[in-house]
Design a binder for these strands. Structure first.
Lengths: 191, 191
DNA sequence: CTCCTTTACATACATTCAGTATGTATGTTA
DNA sequence: TAACATACATACTGAATGTATGTAAAGGAG
């Protein structure tokens, strides 16, 4: 049973990240103790602190994996859309699907802001989704909005998407929220 | 220096809540230790655990005070508006002013969701602001939207308000965000 | 006023947890 | 193969949360 060091590292890191993800989702970051994490991962705390600087770094690794998965899920659904409006609505649907994976809303939208702070979070997640959203909005408005207002609109709509994902997770009617998103977008292009 | 029990309780609770608010804002909930709180308040941990069930209950008390202050700030600014649109825009401005008080965005929008969870937070804060928002929206749309979609719209706009408050706190141009909010509202009423 | 109960704390304690220091076996390289 | 680096495991330290217990003052009841 001779494993190379790289294999060992990969396996241990993955086991830790998987176990941490499960417990962080189940109990939240603050209520999850490192002894429980390493027990669930089948390693010792020595392994944890060998591979990660501290508990927060492990959370950050979990978060980065989650953000990457969301980005991949959305990218995999990127279809050529007939119009900017259709592209935005498809993107919204893809985002809701991606955020429907259990635990993602809690990790990305509830725990992360408090654990990592707003700026670190923005660096990890928001750049991707909000960048695409800004581009889609620019296409929708066709240069009708100056840069500053475009940024503001993208930020506000991104927040609306997040809240919609949380509401859907909590059991709200997804169709109602997709319709509300569509109403907001349609309102922007008409007047 | 004979104080009645009620006076003592009031003073101690207030000192604790004030000190906790300062430290929670400065360092965040998780990084604030109860020994530091009681030292800043000039009492002992015995007093803390006599008046509050645990650290989280103290945070909840801070939060409730903050939410009440926001509601009061907004209510104090409630002016008779010429139109539903003007009422909503005035409400937005009042909300931004209220959230500009140092620490409020961190307490209400970043720490609270992780510490108290989404449902407890909704019970404390969202009912007030989002209720008024829903009413304002209903007036704006004049019965043109069914109840479910009205709820969804109110939730999304509430999220947009929150994000705008965070962005403004972070140094973004407030006028740009107020314009973006106005654009979203105007879009809803026109088509 | 006196006794008794309750309130409002203060102090001491038990448990637990995060992070660190150190020891050891295994893989890797010169 | 000898020297070194990596990947852990174990032991330890300081601190923090919550609890149990002790005490002085307030507040009625008689």
């Amino acid at each position: 049973m001779a494993r190379s060091n790289r294999e060992r590292t990969q396996a241990t890191r993955l086991a830790l990240i998987d176990a941490a993800r499960r417990l962080f989702v189940e109990r939240g970051y603050a209520e999850t103790a490192t002894p429980d994490i390493v027990a669930a991962a089948g390693v010792t705390r020595g392994a944890l602190y060998h591979h990660f600087e501290d508990k927060k770094a492990l959370f950050r690794a979990v978060l980065e994996g989650e953000a990457a998965a969301v980005a991949a899920d959305i990218e995999a659904r990127a279809a050529p859309a007939a119009s900017p409006r259709a592209a935005l609505l498809l993107g919204a649907a893809a985002y809701f699907d991606a955020m429907a994976v259990p635990g993602r809303t809690r990790l990305l939208l509830l725990e992360a802001p408090a654990v990592l702070g707003v700026e670190a979070l923005g660096a990890i997640d928001r750049d991707h989704a909000e960048g695409a959203l800004r581009a889609g909005l620019a296409a929708l408005l066709g240069g009708r909005a100056e840069s500053g207002r475009l940024d503001a609109l993208a930020a506000l709509l991104s927040a609306a998407f997040d809240r919609a994902a949380l509401a859907i997770e909590a059991g709200a009617d997804r169709a109602a929220y997709e319709a509300a998103i569509a109403a907001l977008l349609d309102g922007l292009v008409r007047p």
